[in-house]
Every structure is written in structure tokens, then in C-alpha cells.
Design a protein around this nucleic acid. Structure first.
Length: 580
DNA sequence: AGCACGCCGACT
DNA sequence: GTCGGCGTGCTC
């Protein structure tokens, strides 16, 4: 007998080994095997008859049985193709850490009943989470709940009395949860991305909570959205797939709508007043428009809490003589200005500079801070409301100032007033998800606001459809507009995007990027945008964006294979990111 | 990914 | 002559 094994290597190949007599192996089992005279952990992907003359032998097993089912192996293979990565690396990224000494006792991973596959459902509405808990409590089947981050996974584990598979739990606990799930001894397990292939006895329910959360597709391998992977898994193993979100991604909404699979849980409840406030002529001088100032006054008079959401990371310095923004000499991005630290620093290369006393381009002396970051908003609010307790850290402060993440940890209805200091930062970013992100932020703001309170949105586009839809508490309106726009402009879900980036010494990297362009140009169905330099001096890259049909990875993979394989050729390495 | 092999420039 | 840089190719 011969065992084919894949490793965490950037090669598409599997390696064949002889199986020592007396050792019995399963597909999906972890083993140690010699590779280049070193012992490495790999996964058995095939067992076959054949002469094993001249082959090295498997050293030992890591777990006593299969840790991945055939469906999970197949999902891994698909995910590898989809993200132009290797089978082995993809699988290894989704496994619990191996036990250091003893062989872990494992019951064989359950196999599947593809007949049970049903249409994936998208659950929206304020009662979606309660409904999920109720559903899982009543059902007898197994369930896997995937949350965007560890904090959220821990919360779900508690709510569902489930075992945790994420890295917030100890390694031993993660392994125990994995194997308990495989044996059917833990009916419900929760985790983050690393738990996506956890074995479950059928009939299983796969759940993705906060479907819209960008943490479901973090940077780095495996470059694939958890949603896509779970969908594939549910089809292959015949399990039910549920996605939950208050504000789903446009892609998921569209797909679910096409399949009549949107479920609204909960009535439209009382909703705070949403008031757009036009910032024209105000924002350069002050972060608070009149409506927002009034709302803060009103809330503080009633001793209620206020949150101010800032969308800008940092302010910069502006020369009021020539209108130029001070930029990093190497990276060309605006320098970040901090009054507290009395310094400028570059976000890309980290280089710090003392405050200059004149403009480098026109030598003017009138340099002013520009852009409302949390530091400047805090100072302005203190100045305007000296009696208010104002803070960027303390959640109990009367006025809490920070990024959108402060809404995520707040219970519904926490604030009497939420102010969005400058929504347009999201809308004007050259990113087709701008509308979606603005909608998501405003909806979260409304949910964190007491139904008797108000959300003040400061913007130059008070009539924007995202604002209108949140005001009316109407998901449908927003998604209809957004889907239409995406279709017209050829963005997801109607076409797929791919970003290629080439790192290396700039001339040669540029050449390589041009080669990629040549390789893809003129291919039926592809739109290729020419390479552009990004990343400044610290991390310089040439990036090109490709638009294409749904099978884009399978179109470009063979074309780019030579460039991707000879990765260390002088001139840099090519990296591919699907669905950036 | 790591690691060995091999082909060219600088050197005791 | 050799030492060692890195570009190239292979790993059962």
C-alpha cells in the first residue's frame, strides 16, 4: 500500500510513502513523514495499491484516526484552487495544533449524506440571534457556529453552552473540542476561521454569524471568505447553512434573494430618529454641526450618554497658503499629525518627523491641522462642553469618542445620541463597497441608539440612499439600489475581482507586473487595469486589478502558473488575492 | 518553505 | 587558485 501525503509547502504535488506493516491509515489522517531527511507533519489524501519499492516509509501517525472527512479534504482542495494556493497549506491552516507527545485518540470523522443539502438561508432582523439559539436548542443535530473574532466566538460559546474551537481556548481544549465534535459528544461547537473544517456528525447545521464582518476574510492565507468555504462544505456534505447579519453583504443579499432564502426574524421595532446634517462650510473649522451640538446638549441635560463616531485614523497638516497637505517624502501618503505627541509620522514607513515651521513646497508658515480624528474631536468637544465627561477609552463617559468598533461592544440602545462626525470618508473612498460600509455603520449606530434618541449623520450627501434606507429602517430599499449600481458598474456579485501584486526591486517588479498584464490582456471576458505602484518605500509593490466572470481563478491560474511558481526569480514575487 | 547545488565576482 | 554570493530546482 502507498499513502499520498500533502504538506504545508507551496507545491501542488502530493508525496508518496510506503506504509509500514502493522500501521493502518485513513484518508484525512495526520502523519509524520520524512521529507528531505527532515520529519514533517502532513495529511494523507489518498491510499492506493502499488509497489512501494524505493519509497520512504511513513514514520508514525499524529492522531489515531482521520481528523478530516473526505468532504473536508475536498473542500480544502477546492479552496486551494480558488485562492491559488496549495492543497497542503490550505488544509494545515484549518487544523487544531497537534498533540506534542502522545497520539491523540480519535474516532473516525463522520461521513456525509449529500442528499440533505438545502438552500443556504440568510437571516436578518433584530430577533435573528434569539431565533438561532432557539432553533439550535430544539434541534437534535450537530452544529458549528463560526464567529468573526474570538470575543464573539466566546460569547456564542457561552450563549449556546458550546465547546470552543478557536485560539482563545487552550490548545488542549481546542483538540478536545475537535475530537468531541467528531465523535458527536459535543453537539454544538463554536469557533473562528480555524474551525471551518471541524468534523460534525450528520445531520449538521453550519452557521456563519455577522456574515458582513470583514474579519471573515482576513488578510493572509487562506485568502478565501469563510462564507464561500462553508457554502461549499454544506453542498459537499449535505448540511444546512445559515448566515446571520443585521446588514448582510450585498453579495449575500443578492444570492439569497435570487433563491428566495431571506428570512426576516423579528418585527420592525421602534427606531431612533436619523437626522442628516449638512457639513458644508462647517467641517473645516468645527467637527460639530448645529444639529449634533443640540443633540449632545439635549442628551447631557437628561444625563444620557453620547457616542461620536470618527472615521478618520489620524489628522494631517495643511498649508493654508498653497493648500498642500504635508506628505511623506518616501511614501507620498499624508503624514499623520498628533498634537499630543507634537510630531508627524508616516503610517507606511513609520518614520517620525518633528513639526516643521514652514511648508516644504511654498515655505508658508501657516500650517493647520486638517481632518477630524479622535484626538481633535475630543479636544473640540471638551472645549465646547467643558462640563461633560469626555473620553476615548472609558465606556461610561457621558461622551465616548472613537472608531465604529465602539458600537460593536455597546448593548442595543446604549446611547441617547450617536453622531457620525464625517460619513463621507467612507463614501468617497475609491472603493465599490463604500455604500455598503456607510449603510452598515449607520445601521449599527441606529441599533446602539435608544429608540427615543437620535442618530446625527454629518455629511455632504444628506440625500444618499444609504442614509435614507437606515432612516426608514428599510433593508430592501438599500439593497435594491446597491445591487442595481453593482450590476451597472460590473462589480461583485456580478463580476469578480482579483488583485495581483508584485514585490521586489522596483524596475524588475514593474517588468514582472507588465508581464502579468501582457499575459492577461486580450483574454475573453477579462478586464485588466494597468499596474500601479502602491505601498510607498517600506513595502513597495506594483498592483494590477483584474475583473472577470465567476470562474476567474480557474481562468487566470494556468496563465499565471509559470510566474507564480518561479516565485524567487530576480524581479520579485507575484501574489494573487481573489475577491480583494 | 527550506535546503543543496552550481555558476560567476572579489580575495587571503 | 578558493570563498561565498544568490538564482534555480527538488523534495516521495
Amino acid at each position: 500500500m502507498i499513502a499520498d501525503v500533502v504538506f504545508d509547502l507551496p507545491t501542488p504535488r502530493a508525496f508518496s510513502y510506503a506504509i509500514p506493516s502493522g500501521m493502518s491509515l485513513q484518508r484525512g489522517q495526520r502523519v509524520r513523514a520524512p521529507l528531505r531527511r527532515h520529519s514533517r507533519i502532513g495529511i494523507v489524501v489518498a491510499l492506493r495499491d502499488g509497489a512501494d519499492a524505493g519509497l520512504e516509509a511513513i514514520e508514525r501517525v499524529v492522531d489515531s484516526g482521520a481528523i478530516l472527512s473526505s468532504a473536508a479534504l475536498e473542500v480544502g482542495s477546492w479552496a486551494a484552487e480558488e485562492s491559488l494556493s496549495s492543497w497542503g497549506s490550505t488544509l494545515m491552516a484549518f487544523l487544531p495544533p497537534p498533540a506534542r507527545r502522545r497520539v491523540e485518540e480519535v474516532a473516525p470523522a463522520a461521513e456525509f449524506h449529500p442528499a440533505g443539502a438545502s438552500t443556504p438561508e440568510l437571516w436578518v432582523g433584530s430577533a435573528r440571534e434569539d431565533h438561532l439559539i432557539e432553533r439550535l436548542r430544539r434541534s437534535a443535530g450537530s452544529a458549528l457556529v463560526i464567529a468573526p473574532d474570538r470575543v464573539s466566538a466566546a460569547r456564542w460559546a457561552q450563549r449556546l453552552e458550546a465547546l470552543r474551537l478557536d485560539s482563545g481556548a487552550s490548545e488542549a481544549a481546542r483538540r478536545a473540542a475537535w475530537f468531541a465534535a467528531a465523535r458527536g459528544r459535543a453537539r454544538i461547537v463554536t469557533g473562528t476561521r480555524s474551525a471551518l473544517l471541524a468534523p460534525l456528525p450528520p445531520p449538521a447545521t453550519l452557521v456563519l454569524v455577522d456574515e458582513h464582518d470583514s474579519a471573515h476574510k482576513p488578510p493572509g492565507a487562506p485568502r478565501l471568505h469563510s462564507r464561500e468555504l462553508l457554502l461549499r462544505r454544506s453542498l459537499l456534505e449535505g448540511s444546512r447553512f445559515l448566515m446571520l447579519s443585521g446588514t448582510p453583504s450585498v453579495e449575500s443579499w443578492w444570492r439569497a434573494q435570487e433563491q428566495h432564502a431571506i428570512r426576516v426574524h423579528g418585527e420592525r421595532g421602534p427606531w431612533p430618529l436619523l437626522i442628516p446634517a449638512d457639513t458644508r462650510g462647517i467641517l473645516p473649522n468645527h467637527p460639530l454641526t448645529l444639529p449634533l451640538t443640540r443633540a449632545i446638549e439635549e442628551a447631557s441635560r437628561r444625563d444620557r450618554r453620547v457616542a461620536l463616531i470618527v472615521t478618520r485614523r489620524a489628522a494631517t497638516l495643511l498649508c493654508t497658503d498653497c493648500g498642500a497637505i504635508l506628505r511623506c517624502a518616501d511614501c507620498a501618503v499624508p503624514l499623520e499629525f498628533s498634537r499630543a505627541r507634537r510630531a508627524l509620522s508616516c503610517r507606511i514607513c513609520g518614520r517620525g518627523e518633528p513639526l516643521p515651521d514652514h511648508c516644504p513646497s511654498c515655505h508658508g508658515h501657516r500650517l493647520l491641522p486638517f481632518g477630524w480624528d479622535a484626538e481633535r474631536v475630543e479636544a473640540a468637544v471638551r472645549r465646547r462642553f467643558p462640563k461633560l465627561t469626555v473620553s476615548r477609552e472609558d465606556p461610561r463617559a457621558q461622551a465616548l469618542i472613537g472608531a465604529a468598533s465602539i458600537l460593536k461592544v455597546a448593548a442595543p440602545g446604549t446611547f441617547d445620541c450617536v453622531g457620525i462626525v464625517a460619513l463621507d470618508r467612507l463614501l468617497s473612498v475609491p472603493d465599490f463597497r463604500g455604500g455598503e460600509r456607510a449603510f452598515e455603520l449607520l445601521w449599527a449606530a441606529a441599533e446602539a441608539t435608544s429608540p427615543r434618541g437620535r442618530v446625527i449623520v454629518q455629511t455632504l450627501h444628506p440625500e444618499h440612499y444609504a442614509i435614507e434606507a437606515v432612516k426608514m429602517q428599510d433593508l430592501e430599499t438599500f439593497y435594491q439600489r446597491e445591487v442595481k449600481l453593482r450590476a451597472e458598474l460590473g462589480y461583485p456579485p456580478f463580476r469578480r475581482l482579483c488583485a495581483l501584486s508584485v514585490t521586489g526591486p522596483s524596475d524588475e517588479a514593474r517588468n514582472l507586473a507588465e508581464q502579468c498584464l501582457e499575459m492577461l490582456r486580450g483574454i475573453e471576458g477579462l478586464t485588466v487595469y494597468p499596474p500601479a505602484p502602491i505601498g510607498g518605500v517600506k513595502n513597495p509593490r506594483w498592483q494590477l486589478v483584474v475583473k472577470g466572470p465567476q470562474d476567474l481563478p480557474r481562468i487566470i491560474s494556468p496563465l499565471l502558473a509559470p510566474l507564480l511558481e518561479r516565485r524567487r526569480r530576480r524581479g520579485g514575487i507575484v501574489r494573487v488575492e481573489m475577491d480583494p
